[in-house]
Design a protein around this nucleic acid. Structure first.
Ligand SMILES: [Zn+2]
Ligand SMILES: [Zn+2]
Ligand SMILES: [Zn+2]
Ligand SMILES: [Zn+2]
Lengths: 147, 147
DNA sequence: CTTGACCTTTGACTAATGTCTAAGGTTTAT
DNA sequence: ATAAACCTTAGACATTAGTCAAAGGTCAAG
């Protein structure tokens, strides 16, 4: 059993964050001590890890809540209902990956086109691209001065 | 030249959003009409598209501002300075992609393990996984009832 | 020359996600 | 038995990214 401070610090979040998640129904500690301290189990810890990982990839707390709370009306749902939610999230993740990959490609092009030298940025291909057309940049550039 | 409403609606954002971006130094229309209307050029439109694309992949407006505003002190920066910023963003993007891929894998495992049938979710592998261990789920399940 | 659709500004408001403060109770170590 | 480090609650505050409303100016069509 972890107390709030232990669990929070092991994930580098604030105690307040855990209380906030509890208030919003995302993670309720499985136990309380006699004096009212929150006591988190290994299972609670796994849920927290799930929440934080989902968050870092762009799910909102509402999304996460939806995922976690299917659990609750388990008996009023079929496998199909559960799977639909997961598949929707999966699609969302895949869309995000596609967008990120697109963006990565643009940035990579920008980066590759720039010499990275010490010459003035006035001739920098990256800046030229930003000025003129982000999606259609010249592949090379050179400086007249030393680099 | 586009007026605010045209540009906004062509990207399905609110006029207010464009004014907000302007106020925060992200996108200033290149011209104003005599009567003070904002007039956006094709170039402005490209910048907007860049901003929105960057946003959908998780960059904050502050990040985007940083990227766009290198332009400004061009003469006080070397190519190297510019490239550093782009490369930092690129790394960030690649980290996000890695995280998303990890998450995608988990979701895919969850999805694949669930039969998706009409049987009660009480035996659903997804829910079992959420209950017990999100990262270590049983690969299969079956229902005793009809599906 | 008025009507309706558009634009301007300023400033208040919202929602999501925390973060901090105040006032106090608990546990552990010395 | 007292200090240090922890916990409790309620509620105020912060940040990001808008969104809306009020009061008014502009422009094209009938
Ligand atoms: Zn260069
Ligand atoms: Zn360069
Ligand atoms: Zn099933
Ligand atoms: Zn299932």
């Amino acid at each position: 059993m972890y107390r709030i401070g232990e669990l929070a610090s092991s994930f580098k979040v604030k105690n307040d964050t855990l209380r906030f998640y509890e208030k919003h129904g995302l993670l309720t500690p499985s136990h309380r001590s006699e004096s009212g301290y929150r006591l988190y189990t290994e299972q609670d810890k796994k849920i927290l890890s799930f929440i934080l990982r989902a968050k870092t990839v762009g799910f909102s707390l509402a999304d996460i809540h939806e995922l976690l709370s299917i659990e609750v009306d388990k008996d009023n749902n079929a496998c199909a209902d559960v799977k639909i939610v997961v598949d929707a999230k999966l699609e969302e993740v895949e869309r995000k990956i596609a967008e990120l990959s697109h963006f990565q490609k643009s940035l990579k092009q920008l980066s590759d086109a720039c010499c990275g030298g010490s010459g003035s940025a006035a001739q920098c291909t990256i800046l030229e691209a930003l000025e003129s057309d982000i999606n259609n940049l010249r592949p090379e550039h050179h400086h007249d001065e030393q680099e």
